[in-house]
Amino acid sequence: MTPVGMTSFDDVYALPDPRGYFTALGPYEYQTPGHAQPVFRALAAELGPGRRTVLDVCCSYGINSALLNHDVTLDELFAHYTSARAAELTTAELADRDRDFYAVRRRPDATRAIGIDVSRPALDYALAVGLLDEGHCVDLEHTEPEERLRGSLAGTGLITVTGGTSFLTERTFARLFTAIGHPVPVAAFVLRTHDYGAISGCLESYGLTVERAATTQPQRRFTDPREQERAVATVTAFGEDPAGKESAGYFHTRLHLAR
C-alpha cells in the first residue's frame, strides 16, 4: 500500500520484468538505489567470513543487488531497460539477454544476495537472471518467517533497504532479527516524509546504535503539485526545512545506519 500523500507506482512491481518499473520511474528521475550503491558496497566490504550475505528488504526486481554485485550504474540500468532493443523482446528473451548482461559485469567481490518482497513476479525475475541467490515472497509485517527463510538468514551480515521503510514498521525488523538469531547492521535510506522513530527504537532495543546522516539525497521528482505540497507540509511538521529539497521539487531521503 502506498503511503498517504504519495502517487502510487504499485502496478510496476507486479509486471513480469523490470521494463515497466524503469519506464514509469525514469521521467521522475528516481535516484535512491544509485545513491545507495557506494554505501552498500562499502558496508559489504566490511563483512567477515560467515557473514557474507546481504539481505535486501523490499527488493523488487533486485535492483540493489544488481548495483551491489555488478559493474553497472543506475543510469545504465535505466538506459538498458528503456531502450528500443529491450522493447522488442519478450520477457523470456529479455531474461536471456540479462543473464549475459549481468554475468559479464559480475564483480569479483560479489556477496551472496537474498531478497524479500511481496511481489512474486519481481522476485522470480531477479532469481531468473541471477541477481538474487534466494528470493522469499513474504510480508513480514503480518507473517512470521517460515523455516526456509530462517535457515537462509543464518549468514546474513547486512540488511539493506532503499524504498521499503515507508511501508514497514518495527515488526518486520524484530522478526528478521529473531530469525537471524542476532542483530546485524541495517542500512536504510528513509524518506524525510516518513517517521523512522519506531523502527530506530526497535533496532536500538537490540543493542544497535542508529546513525542519522547529516546530508540528504534526492529520491525522485514529484508527480504533481499536490504531491509536493503534502511533502512540504509533512517535513515541516517533522521539524525539517524543505528549502532546496522538497520545495525545489524532489522527495529527499536520508541514510539511517544502525550498527
Rank of each mutant, 00 (worst) to 15 (best):
A95Y: 08
P108T: 00
P145S: 06
E144L: 13
F101N: 00
F177N: 01
A237I: 04
T172S: 15
T82Q: 03
S83K: 06
Y30E: 01
L168G: 05
A179V: 06
S60R: 03
H142C: 08
G62Q: 00
A214K: 07
P145L: 05
F251P: 02
S152G: 10
G249D: 00
F189K: 01
V186C: 11
T32P: 03
D96Q: 14
V138W: 01
A237E: 12
R221Q: 13
P16I: 03
G249N: 07
Y21K: 05
A113C: 13
F177Q: 02
D56N: 13
T223N: 06
R85C: 07
P3V: 02
D109I: 09
P242I: 05
A126P: 08
H136L: 07
R171M: 11
T32H: 03
V235E: 01
V184I: 11
P218T: 02
V104E: 15
G62K: 01
F222D: 03
D224P: 04
T172M: 07
R107P: 14
Q219R: 09
Y28F: 15
D133P: 11
T165S: 14
M6R: 13
P218K: 06
D11Q: 12
T90G: 15
L68W: 08
R212Y: 09
E88V: 09
D124R: 10
L67N: 05
S200A: 15
F101L: 07
R254F: 07
V54T: 07
A248P: 11
Y102K: 06
R19L: 04
Y102Q: 04
C137Q: 11
V184D: 08
T53P: 01
L77D: 03
E134T: 03
T90A: 14
R226Y: 09
G135V: 01
V129Q: 00
S200K: 09
A213E: 09
F189C: 05
L94T: 10
R112Y: 09
H35V: 03
S8K: 02
H80A: 13
L15F: 08
S247V: 00
A113N: 06
S119F: 02
E211Y: 11
T172A: 15
Q219A: 15
R112H: 15
G239K: 09
F177E: 00
E146P: 10
H142Y: 04
S83F: 11
A92F: 11
L89S: 05
L149D: 03
T91S: 15
L43E: 11
V118F: 04
Y30W: 12
G244H: 03
S205C: 08
L55Q: 06
T172I: 05
F189M: 13
A95N: 10
H35D: 02
E229T: 14
R148W: 00
C137H: 02
G135K: 00
E134C: 02
T91L: 08
S83T: 04
G62C: 06
R107F: 13
T193V: 15
R112G: 04
E134L: 06
A14T: 09
Y250S: 13
G207Q: 05
E211R: 15
A237G: 13
A188F: 07
V12M: 09
H136E: 03
P16G: 10
L15M: 14
E29W: 06
A36I: 00
R221S: 13
Y21Q: 04
T178G: 12
